[in-house]
Design a protein around this nucleic acid. Structure first.
Lengths: 229, 229
DNA sequence: GTCTATAGGGGGATAGAC
DNA sequence: GTCTATCCCCCTATAGAC
């Protein structure tokens, strides 16, 4: 219902699929609804993308390939600017946050794409999780190294935990913007990129600089009682 | 395939549904698979829960009703302990974090329940979002008031943003524990309640105390460029 | 490259017997 | 309360004509 008439079949399919996967999840989305929206025949999907899973992978690559590239460029820029010396934490956080933020706010489809991320992140299907991590792995390591150099006193364990908390906060805020705008009565608007960026940087600059919290290698799950009250 | 033989039909249905909704999402889960796992007739679901949506609501209430109660108790305990005086931020953060954490680590089904939360949070269907917010609304206001008293200098806008970031980080870490354990090579284990609690408290104690980042009431979405580099 | 036709199997929901 | 039978619809995927 939103596909441009002049775009080619592949693009129309990708547009429709992106929306359907975002709105209903992978299992919940149906190819029949997708091909109807894209005004192509059902068999066309199989011709171009081989399967429903192949279609999801293509939807994914189209959007996150470029973002991935932006990430590496930002990292390289930091490396050349602060060669040897340690880069300010703020610069690294901005490098992490800005590329996805541009994707979220850059086009009219930003909100759909963010919903899709939320769906993928929440899907425990291993084949889908693999899709998500495929490219992200090296990037993760590179960012961790960069932050490590900026906050050298922080133990690895604390660093890694806070890195996960950062992505979690970011994904959560972006993946359902209308809900946040609604429950905060318009005070917080996730499509206000300035606000998201500055709050993320403020919280996690302080968060990465906060004293280490881990006490030891810690073997297994323990009741929280001992430490909490 | 996991339902206890001795439990009653309602409970078996709820157990099976919880798992199915967590693994496939609301749209993706099928009642037929649920009733097979629960070893009941398809019509039984409609007799007890009226519809697929009613079933989800029941699954939800069974788990989060008690957590909701724990939240209020924790808030009341803080209020009586620090009557008039401002409560330490750490105490409030622990009150927010511990009840869900106990649900996540308390039973063998904790991981399933957390996956379910992730699915629900990521589902843009308004009827499902409403389910999620129904009880959470008042609690949100109460916690915001409590934190506000602990960090009185922080503008409301910053406070609200950081509150959302907190929940986001928390949900993200809990809702797919095996992924985090895997990508961190076992260094971060989300079923280690002590670790989650202490890292959350460390990051967000510092985060709420960090200087305000918002500059004005901010009307609408602006390009991130102006502020970012 | 694009289409029709179809295989072969689900899906949510309800009526009405017991 | 529990069951059968059924309504009417949707699903992914493929074969094979054009």
């Amino acid at each position: 219902m939103k596909a441009q008439p002049q775009s080619d079949p592949q693009t129309r399919i990708l547009d429709a699929a992106e929306r359907a996967f975002a709105n209903h999840g992978f299992d919940g989305a149906s190819l029949r609804q997708i091909v109807e929206t894209a005004r192509v025949n059902l068999a066309t999907v199989y011709y171009y993308f081989r399967s429903k899973e192949g279609l999801l992978a293509a939807v994914f690559d189209r959007r996150f390939g470029p973002v991935h590239e932006e990430h590496w460029q930002a990292l390289r820029r930091i490396e050349t600017e602060f060669q040897g010396r340690r880069a300010p934490l703020k610069k690294i956080l901005e490098a992490m946050i800005l590329p996805p933020l541009r994707l979220a706010s850059g086009t009219s489809r930003g909100e759909i794409i963010m919903r899709l991320i939320g769906r993928i992140v929440a899907d425990p299907n291993p084949r889908i999780q693999e899709l998500l991590q495929r490219q992200h792995k090296d990037l993760r390591v590179a960012y961790l190294k960069a932050i490590q150099r900026s906050v050298p006193h922080l133990p690895k364990r604390d660093l890694w935990w806070r890195f996960e908390l950062l992505w979690g906060a970011f994904v959560f805020v972006l993946c359902n913007p209308s809900r946040i705008e609604q429950i905060t009565d318009g005070v917080c608007n996730p499509s206000d990129s300035n606000a998201v960026l500055s709050q993320m940087v403020a919280v996690f600059s302080a968060g990465f600089r906060a004293p280490a919290a881990s006490r030891r290698k810690s073997t297994k799950a323990r009741r929280p009682k001992g430490r909490s009250r």
